Amino acid sequence: MNGPQHYREGERLLALSEHTPSNYDETNPAATLLAAQATAHFLAAQVAATAMQATVGGTELGPGEDAFQAWFDATGVKPESKGGDR
């Protein structure tokens, strides 16, 4: 899985945890497990996003446009114009 895929999976699991029925009065072990799994995916996504900003061998190569577009698609964020148009 890449970073955006981890992000999407975290969102899916978190949404699932919110709609998981329980036979318990105050706690829902199944929902708690799903939320913990979502947290792990969100953490992996954060690590991947942070790694995109790292330098490689002392150079600032950076990821390509396709990597950024995958993040924009996963998070539902539209990239800002670089031309200064508002």
Results as ranks from 00 to 15, higher is better:
4 P>I: 02
8 R>H: 03
10 G>A: 11
10 G>K: 00
10 G>R: 00
11 E>V: 12
12 R>H: 10
13 L>Q: 01
14 L>N: 04
16 L>I: 03
16 L>T: 07
16 L>E: 14
16 L>F: 07
17 S>W: 00
18 E>W: 05
19 H>F: 08
19 H>G: 05
20 T>S: 05
21 P>M: 04
21 P>H: 05
22 S>A: 12
23 N>L: 15
24 Y>K: 15
27 T>F: 09
28 N>Q: 06
29 P>F: 03
30 A>D: 10
30 A>C: 06
30 A>K: 00
31 A>D: 00
32 T>R: 08
34 L>F: 04
34 L>G: 01
34 L>E: 00
34 L>I: 02
36 A>N: 14
36 A>F: 08
37 Q>F: 05
37 Q>L: 14
37 Q>M: 13
39 T>Q: 14
40 A>S: 14
41 H>K: 01
42 F>Y: 13
42 F>I: 05
43 L>K: 14
43 L>E: 12
43 L>I: 13
44 A>M: 09
44 A>D: 02
45 A>C: 09
46 Q>F: 03
46 Q>L: 10
47 V>S: 11
49 A>I: 01
50 T>D: 11
51 A>E: 15
52 M>R: 11
52 M>T: 05
52 M>C: 06
53 Q>T: 15
53 Q>D: 08
53 Q>K: 13
54 A>P: 00
55 T>R: 10
57 G>A: 13
59 T>E: 12
61 L>I: 13
61 L>T: 13
62 G>P: 01
62 G>M: 04
63 P>G: 05
63 P>K: 10
63 P>L: 04
64 G>Q: 10
65 E>S: 13
65 E>V: 12
66 D>W: 04
68 F>N: 05
71 W>A: 01
72 F>G: 01
73 D>M: 03
73 D>C: 03
75 T>M: 11
75 T>L: 02
76 G>E: 09
77 V>F: 11
78 K>I: 08
78 K>W: 05
79 P>G: 06
80 E>L: 07
80 E>F: 01
81 S>H: 10
81 S>T: 11
82 K>G: 11
82 K>T: 14
83 G>M: 09
83 G>Q: 07
84 G>V: 04
